[in-house]
């Protein structure tokens, strides 16, 4: 078996090896309650990574995801009392809209996605600071439990977040595998010029990809604020790096076209295992960022499709 054929199987093999290694060191790690709890804790990050997958799948990037989630935590905390359940569609609509803005500037105005999303992220940060008055906000606990209590908590031993995660994964998987949009995104990721030459409205599909990314970042922010029962302009800082790592170690390369949302699910689990294994091996939380930065470099170097990059800029 050559390395190229092995490559697409690397993510889940990595996951199994990591779980086995950590399990060998500390058998309590393998208890179902622990594993399920671990998976439940990482769900907000997973949802953000799920959205990022769409942006990376077409060869772009979305650096606004973290600021978007920050802003949504503020909006959710602020408007929960007045809007009730309607705060959820509002948040998702805002995320979708701002994602559309990034996509518009990237595709129609030729602003590279890392700049356009960085700019939209800056706007989000300003909005978050303005809406919150630059302080941490709290949700009304009883109202949160009444309206969004189903999101957190457990059913049996399974954290409820996992149902949300699986539901969103199923929707994204359906979009990716069974819709014209999914096919079009694959075509754009595999070769944008060829896709355009075959008559595809490339711009529209790319904008949609960024919009989905924005909407899912908003869902991540919403879930996060429900979990913490509040919001602040910098509360979700620290999400971006592991989210990008999750997409890339899952096997969706920076050059796009292969991989997909299922890969991101595996990638997120790898991130979760790396995180908890660092605790088991006595690596402090302060060192995690360094470790993930290095993992990111290795993951990119291994997955990137260099035949697609004539010049590496």
């Amino acid at each position: 078996m050559t390395f190229q054929r092995l490559k697409s199987h690397l993510p889940w093999i990595t996951l199994l090896v990591l779980v086995a290694v950590v399990g060998a060191v500390d058998p309590t790690f393998l208890r179902p309650v622990n594993l399920l709890g671990l998976a439940g804790d990482i769900v907000p990050l997973f949802i953000m990574a799920l959205g990022l997958t769409f942006a990376i799948y077409i060869g772009g990037i979305d650096l606004s995801a973290q600021s978007m989630a920050n802003m949504i935590t503020v909006m959710a905390s602020l408007y929960l009392s007045s809007l009730g359940l309607w705060v959820a569609p509002l948040c998702i609509a805002v995320g979708f809209l701002l994602g559309t803005v990034s996509g518009y500037f990237t595709t129609r105005q030729f602003v590279p996605s890392f700049i356009s999303t960085l700019a939209v992220g800056g706007v989000c940060f300003s909005m978050a600071q303005w809406l919150s008055g630059n302080r941490a906000l709290n949700m009304d606990a009883t109202q949160r439990d009444a309206l969004f209590g189903w999101m957190i908590g457990r059913t049996g031993i399974i954290p409820n977040e996992l149902f949300i995660a699986v539901g969103l994964l199923a929707i994204c998987l359906f979009i990716e595998r069974r819709t014209t949009l999914g096919r079009a995104l694959k075509a754009v990721g595999a070769g944008e010029l060829a896709a355009a030459a075959s008559g595809l409205n490339v711009g529209r599909f790319k904008i949609l990809a960024f919009a989905i990314s924005g909407a899912l970042a908003a869902v991540a922010g919403l879930l996060f604020s429900v979990k913490l029962s509040g919001g602040a302009p910098t509360i979700a800082n620290g999400f971006l790096l592991p989210a990008i790592v999750a997409v890339l170690v899952g096997g969706t390369p920076l050059t796009g076209g292969v991989g997909g949302v299922l890969n991101t699910a595996i990638g997120t689990l790898i991130v979760a295992v790396i995180r908890s294994s660092m605790l088991y091996f006595g690596i402090e939380a302060t060192q995690q960022q360094m470790v993930f930065g290095l993992v990111l470099i290795v993951a990119i170097a291994l997955t990137i499709d260099r035949s697609k990059l004539r010049l590496v800029k």
């Binding site: 790096l241 990137i304 590496v312």
Partner: peptide, 19 residues
Amino acid sequence: LRIPSFMASLAIGFVCTGA
């Protein structure tokens, strides 16, 4: 490693902040 500069530098930036 032939990694696009925006991603290479972003990762190095994270590593430096961590350090």
